[in-house]
Simulated scan of single mutants.
Amino acid sequence: MARKVVDEPSEDVVANARKERAARRNPFARIALFLRQVFGELRKVVRPTRRELLTYTATVLVFVVIMMAIVSGLDLAFGWAVSWVFGDGTAVQ
C-alpha cells in the first residue's frame, strides 16, 4: 500500500504555481504568490510542546557538555604527550 509523503507539495499548490508561471505576472504578483506559498507551508509545520522543547534543549545541552569534556580531555592528553616527547623547554644545554 502506497503512503502519502507529507513533504511533497499538495496538488493545488503545484497547479496554482503552474497557472501563475503561465500567466507571467509582474514581479510584485510573483512575490505575493511566493509569500502565499510560504505561509501555506508554515501552516503545515508541527511545533513541539513546551515539555518536548525542554527535553530537546536539555538533551542538546548535555551532549554539548559531554563533547566539551571529551575535547578538553584530548587536548590535555595531547599537550602532555607533546611536552613529554619534545620536552617542556626548561632543560639547560
Results as ranks from 00 to 15, higher is better:
residue 49 T to E: 13
residue 87 G to H: 01
residue 67 M to G: 08
residue 48 P to R: 00
residue 22 A to T: 07
residue 22 A to H: 03
residue 37 Q to G: 15
residue 7 D to V: 04
residue 92 V to Y: 09
residue 37 Q to D: 11
residue 66 I to F: 10
residue 13 V to M: 08
residue 8 E to A: 08
residue 58 A to I: 03
residue 38 V to D: 00
residue 70 I to Y: 02
residue 64 V to W: 02
residue 31 I to G: 02
residue 9 P to E: 06
residue 34 F to E: 09
residue 4 K to H: 12
residue 1 M to T: 11
residue 32 A to M: 09
residue 56 Y to P: 07
residue 86 F to T: 05
residue 35 L to W: 11
residue 34 F to C: 15
residue 44 K to G: 06
residue 63 F to I: 11
residue 31 I to A: 14
residue 22 A to G: 08
residue 56 Y to A: 15
residue 21 R to Q: 12
residue 15 A to M: 05
residue 91 A to G: 13
residue 59 T to F: 12
residue 61 L to M: 13
residue 84 W to L: 14
residue 52 E to P: 02
residue 64 V to R: 08
residue 70 I to C: 05
residue 27 P to A: 03
residue 89 G to K: 02
residue 73 G to F: 08
residue 78 F to D: 12
residue 9 P to C: 01
residue 79 G to I: 06
residue 25 R to M: 12
residue 10 S to H: 06
residue 30 R to C: 01
residue 90 T to S: 15
residue 10 S to F: 05
residue 31 I to C: 07
residue 6 V to E: 05
residue 48 P to W: 00
residue 78 F to A: 12
residue 89 G to R: 01
residue 58 A to V: 08
residue 74 L to T: 13
residue 64 V to K: 06
residue 49 T to A: 06
residue 74 L to W: 06
residue 65 V to Q: 01
residue 45 V to S: 00
residue 27 P to H: 01
residue 77 A to M: 11
residue 45 V to F: 02
residue 69 A to Y: 07
residue 28 F to N: 01
residue 67 M to R: 12
residue 74 L to Y: 10
residue 76 L to T: 13
residue 35 L to I: 05
residue 77 A to Y: 11
residue 69 A to F: 05
residue 12 D to C: 04
residue 29 A to G: 02
residue 82 V to C: 10
residue 61 L to R: 00
residue 89 G to F: 00
residue 62 V to P: 05
residue 7 D to Q: 01
residue 77 A to P: 03
residue 53 L to I: 13
residue 72 S to K: 03
residue 40 G to Q: 06
residue 8 E to G: 03
residue 17 A to F: 08
residue 73 G to Q: 03
residue 71 V to P: 10
residue 79 G to T: 07
residue 89 G to W: 01
residue 76 L to W: 04
residue 64 V to P: 04
residue 75 D to Q: 10
residue 88 D to S: 09
residue 80 W to C: 06
